[in-house]
């Protein structure tokens, strides 16, 4: 990453893609109450994405607003981490992804709330409360599924194992950024370890660490997600409802 524009863009893309993935659960969640909860969290992420992308557009100064950034870029121009673009999988995979994302976003937004850039500080102050709830929600489910039945434990552990390699990318050092992601790792590890312990789950060994999202090199999954997210805007530019 280089400069505030790329930083705001990366965080905005994280939130936008996470929102789109979570929204895929709408009408498909295991129970109605969870359906609403996931939609709520998706809307929180979308709210943060709008603020961050609007600000990124202003920083860039090329006349791109939030819609232009969200709907008129191709996958190679997106700067989100790979974690958020991974398919939802089963409910356990979605909860593992949400746990790791929230355990990263909470200390990130908290640190951002105290940074020198006033706009980013205001966004951080607003979003950290939402992240605290996302973390609470994901932790609740991970504990229940991990420490539940034999089958739920097996699937929750498999989900954690499957998603874990993608967390390392979140903390790639960037000393020039308003908040250096590397400084958030200890907080993340402590929060995640506490939840996994209580859930009787094992933290996977760290080995393979895919990355590239921050440079625009994504998994194939992002292109499909963007196709669905962008098709309306591209077919009907400037459409409103």
């Amino acid at each position: 990453m280089i400069g505030p524009f790329d930083f705001a863009l990366a965080l905005g893309d994280d939130a936008l893609v996470a929102a789109q993935r979570l929204a895929e659960w709408t009408t498909r969640a295991p129970e109605m109450e969870e359906d609403i909860a996931l939609a709520n969290i998706a809307l929180d992420q979308l709210g943060a994405a709008r603020l961050l992308l609007s600000y990124a557009g202003e920083l860039e100064g090329a006349g791109r607003d939030e819609d232009a950034l969200a709907f008129l870029r191709d996958d190679r121009e997106f700067r989100n981490c790979l974690l958020v673009e991974l398919p939802n999988g089963d409910f356990a995979v979605t909860m593992a992804k949400l746990l790791f994302l929230a355990a990263y976003q909470l200390p990130l937004y908290t640190a951002l709330a105290g940074c020198a850039d006033e706009r980013l500080a205001a966004i951080g102050a607003k979003a950290r409360k939402e992240s605290a709830y996302h973390l609470d929600h994901a932790s609740t489910w991970v504990r229940r599924l991990g420490d539940g039945t034999e089958e739920s434990h097996r699937r929750m552990q498999a989900a954690v194992d499957q998603v874990w390699p993608y967390v390392h990318e979140l903390f790639a050092p960037d000393p020039a950024a308003p908040v250096d992601p590397a400084t958030l790792r200890a907080d993340f590890d402590a929060r995640v370890a506490a939840v996994l312990d209580e859930a009787t789950l094992t933290r996977p060994e760290s080995g393979w660490a895919p990355a590239g999202g921050r440079d625009g090199v994504h998994t194939e999954h992002l292109s499909f997600l963007l196709a669905e997210m962008q098709v309306l805007h591209r077919a009907h530019p400037g459409a409103r409802w």
């Binding site: 129970e31 109605m32 109450e33 969870e34 609403i36 909860a37 709520n40 609470d136 929600h137 609740t140």
Partner: peptide, 20 residues
């Protein structure tokens, strides 16, 4: 009214359903 397996989740579900 809502469905939940226990009180803790009932509270969270209520938060999501009724404080939007």
């Amino acid at each position: 009214s809502l469905h939940a397996p226990d009180a803790e989740l009932a509270l969270r579900n209520a938060r999501d359903l009724y404080t939007r």
